[in-house]
Nucleic acid binder design. Structure first.
Lengths: 228, 228
DNA sequence: AGACTGAGTTAGGTATACTTAACTCTGGAA
DNA sequence: TTCCAGAGTTAAGTATACCTAACTCAGTCT
């Protein structure tokens, strides 16, 4: 396995994650640029370079978009495994709170050795998910599929269990933490406001009803428990 | 404090360490090139760049050599603090042996946050030295001075306590470990072979006399205990 | 079918940090 | 005091990954 630059690893990871969130087959330049914090021109340049490389990590069609080859996907999953193991380790061993781990893990993920990965995985007892509930890819690149949906898409009356929360925004994580909304907390949708209005939910962590904006519910994933 | 690139941090660290080992006021291009694994031309280029920068980290005189400014030295010590804290942490928390930590720490030292540094320092109880016996600079940049000399320079008949061992060569570290020669092991010089010949020492870790080559004794530092 | 718009690309340029090859300086020995 | 070897520098070029500005494409709306 050749080693890839942090930049390349970030691109592969971003392609994987955007495809995952958006569901679309192909990932566009603009979405990548947005996620990576670079210009669209930079993304085009990198995609051309990667597509021309003998590594065959991506399939890139001009004006259409990118997707990962199996090899590219495996590499992306290795980086994601690093990231999620690190987040779990920082929480469990060094007392980081769940809103602090993301940035640190983003830097460390490109730098740790396979040995380091193995040691923290063993220390943690080979965990299945990180502090935000995201599943941790196994060494062989396998990732258990989940039947999770956005809290946004949970129908009124339905009950769900939080399976995962996006780790991107520390502010959001602190907010959710204050509300006690983290995996595997159960909740029920009571009401949905008009025009993408707030979602009213009931959870055992709060005696009163909680109203959540779209921004929030888009970043919270749940597994449906009942269809009342 | 501005952040510096891994390359810059490596140069500052190397300048500091070479000056330390060699004792000379100025560090030469060749020594830096050797230590950093790059060509002499590359070193010249980087030194010119650093000297021209408004950061004022080094003082560089063409054809003469470099030295660190107080600011450069402080930065170097911060990197070295990272390195030695990491080595200690990897040993104490993740079960690395002392010959495995150097490479991992070399990569991690450029990437960890101040927060991470603080957390591992606290976890370790703010240790004074790393697994090889090297002193760990404090946060304020202070470093307790030691009265240590090379084992090479310990006179016949003198007794010393190993204070530090170079962490550069894993092979050497495994060798020393097998002989039980690590801080703060005491030993006595029995005899010195001719022509930089082997140094014969006696240590409580071995019933028989141990013969050490120059390559080895140059990398072992001791504090003189007695002058018999 | 044509035009518009947002997404995407191209062209040209920057910064970092490295290389090789050829040249120059410095300090010690003859 | 000159010469020479090794240390150091310069010049030119490479690779990576980013930028801005200007252009083009694709798909939709009319």
């Amino acid at each position: 396995m050749p080693r890839h630059s942090p930049a390349v690893e970030d691109y592969l990871k971003a392609i994987y994650e955007i495809r995952q969130e958006a569901g679309a087959k192909l990932v566009g330049t603009a979405a990548l640029a947005e996620k990576l914090g670079v210009t669209r021109a930079s993304v085009t340049g990198m995609l051309k370079k990667l597509a021309a490389s003998t590594e065959h990590l991506i399939v890139y069609t001009r004006y259409r978009g990118v997707r990962l080859t199996p090899k590219g996907e495996k590499t992306a999953l290795e980086v994601i495994r690093h990231h999620r193991l690190l987040e779990t380790y920082l929480t469990a061993a060094l007392g980081y709170s769940w809103d602090q781990v993301h940035t640190e893990a983003d830097h460390l993920e490109h730098v740790i050795s396979e040995d380091f990965e193995e040691r923290i995985a063993a220390f943690l007892g080979h965990p299945q998910s990180d502090p935000h509930g995201a599943p941790i890819p196994q060494r062989d690149g396998s990732l258990p599929a989940r039947r999770e949906i956005r809290l946004t898409d949970l129908a009124v009356g339905q009950e769900g269990a939080i399976s995962r929360v996006s780790d991107r925004d520390p502010e959001l994580l602190r907010y959710l933490d204050r509300l006690g909304l983290r995996p595997p907390q159960r909740l029920r949708v009571l009401e949905r406001g008009p025009f993408d209005g707030p979602l009213h939910i009931q959870s055992s962590t709060s005696p009163s009803v909680i109203a959540l904006s779209r921004r929030v519910t888009d970043d919270v994933y749940v597994v449906v428990l009942s269809v009342n």
